[in-house]
Nucleic acid binder design. Sequence first.
RNA 1: GCGCCUGUAGCUCAGGGGAUAGAGCAUCGGACUUCUAAUCCGAGAGCCGCAGGUUCGAAUCCUGCCAGGCGCGCCA
Length: 566
Amino acid sequence: MVSWEGCNVMSTLVAQKQLAALIASALEQIIDQGMLNISDLPEINLEIPRDKSHGDFASNIALVLAKPAGKKPREIAEMIVENIDDQKFIDKVDIAGPGFINFFLSDQWLYNVLERIEAEKLDYGSSNFGAGEKVLLEFVSANPVGPMNIVNARAAAIGDTLARLFKASGYFVATEYYVNDAGVQTEIFGKSLLSRYRQINNPDYPFPDDGYPGDYIVDLAHELLNQNTALDWMTEDEQIEFCRTWGIDRMVDSQRQDLLDFNVKFDRWFRERELHQAKALENIIKILTERGYIYEAEGAKWFRSTAFGDDKDRVIIKNDGTYTYVTADIAYHYDKLKRGFTKLIDLLGPDHHGYIGRMKAAVQALGYSEDTLEILILQYVALLRDGQQVKMSKRAGEFITLKELLAEVGKDAARYFFIMRSLDSHLDFDLTLAAEQSSENPVYYIQYAHARICSIIRQAGAQSIAVKSVKDVSLQLLNHETEIDLMKKLAELPEEILLSTIERAPHRIARYALDLASLFHSFYTHCYIIGEKEELRDARLVLISCVRIVLERVLTLLGVSAPERM
RNA sequence: GCGCCUGUAGCUCAGGGGAUAGAGCAUCGGACUUCUAAUCCGAGAGCCGCAGGUUCGAAUCCUGCCAGGCGCGCCA
């Protein structure tokens, strides 16, 4: 049994849980009295009504029960309300509309929120929901033969924030970037680099037909020249191999640096070559063969992925004896599983959606459940400049790289813009707006709220006014409408973090940050702080200090900085 | 042809069974002798792509259609 002693409600999550328990016990009493005849209780959900006149929380339970119970919704609602135990934290309970039960809570629960924020600081909103489950989040994994593009950038921002959300929700998370450094593409890359290297002294040296045209390879060639390597004494094959490994290492280094500049740090950069060196591909084929999912046909070896619902079986060893990329990918995922991760999440671009079936099949063929692997598909990004779409052609070597994006709009705006839309949304990224440092830009709007609070606290400090502890101020003075709204929003953070994690929806946090900033700005214009009487001033300082903590918290989740001055 | 995503205010997007459908931008009108006007307050603006169905209740779920984006290799 839940104890109702004291008023321990301190977030919307807790409030909803407690109200649901109250309704459940009311229903039990009604059923015991024989007033209601239903076989089993449905789940009781509390929602926060859009309209404030509908209370702090509302339940539709009476409407849901109307049919199975064969009674009118309002009649059921009345019985429930009559049987709800009186609680100190409930001001009143109304029945409204077709049969909604609306709960109006005493403001005390909001003051408890401030106490909790003061106690937990930047941990406020965290939970142990994940119970330490080991999750491996793989994202970006861009080919190392070229610079990272705008979709990679979106994946980086979203993947990184998802990782932060999983951590906040009590999971053990590791992030990985898978480097395809073993395929045909890297060989073409090696040839391209060697050709550019030769062209420095011999402009007529041929460039491979299928070579990579970008200028970055020319830059790499000049860097290679300055390295004074033993390249010229090698055979042709050795030269290509050297260019490949040296060049890929340089590409990976620069990708790693670009991502660090974007506030994205991977726990591990996993090289495909490690799998080959460890004979992991041979091993995975052996395992799948033993399990009976490999067969030979048309001179190749196939993985029977259709056994688990895939559209067609997949070639795993080509008729020329080499492996397909799927083979390495299965080996990589098996490696993840062997390392003890019980949940694998891959964040991929929309061109990879056909990949879901075969990889889920592979995981199952290896003896794991289908939902061990979760593949999130990210939709494309269209870049706009001055309202016009920026055309990008990879073949012509024209595309905006992550590095260029950061130079143009900055890390904070870029992160926010990528995260503010749901994964499913085909994002229109407005470069002009993102680069603008004005009120039209939501990033600055949120950061400005944080900087404003810091400024007030600085001003107060200059007048020797310190921010007191929550328990030393008169919280009941915080009763202005904008103050109540602000505290309600603070109360929502734990729920928001949890839902953002469960729904894999980082955009919810971006929106929450914007809403909180908006409520603060509104409060700021309606309520003074430093000029007010001491008691009210101190209470308000506590309030804005809590708002500041939560703003810093959500900005950190987004990977955006929380400036103290602007 | 098959698969995935999308279609909501002039624009970009939230909401994904519940009460009068929301936000930002844009437009229009107001607010600075005091803590940052990078702000606030207010107004107008919508057959929620179309047509059926399920439901006490559908923007939300199901079916079909229309439109846009992206896939459907022994490429990665």
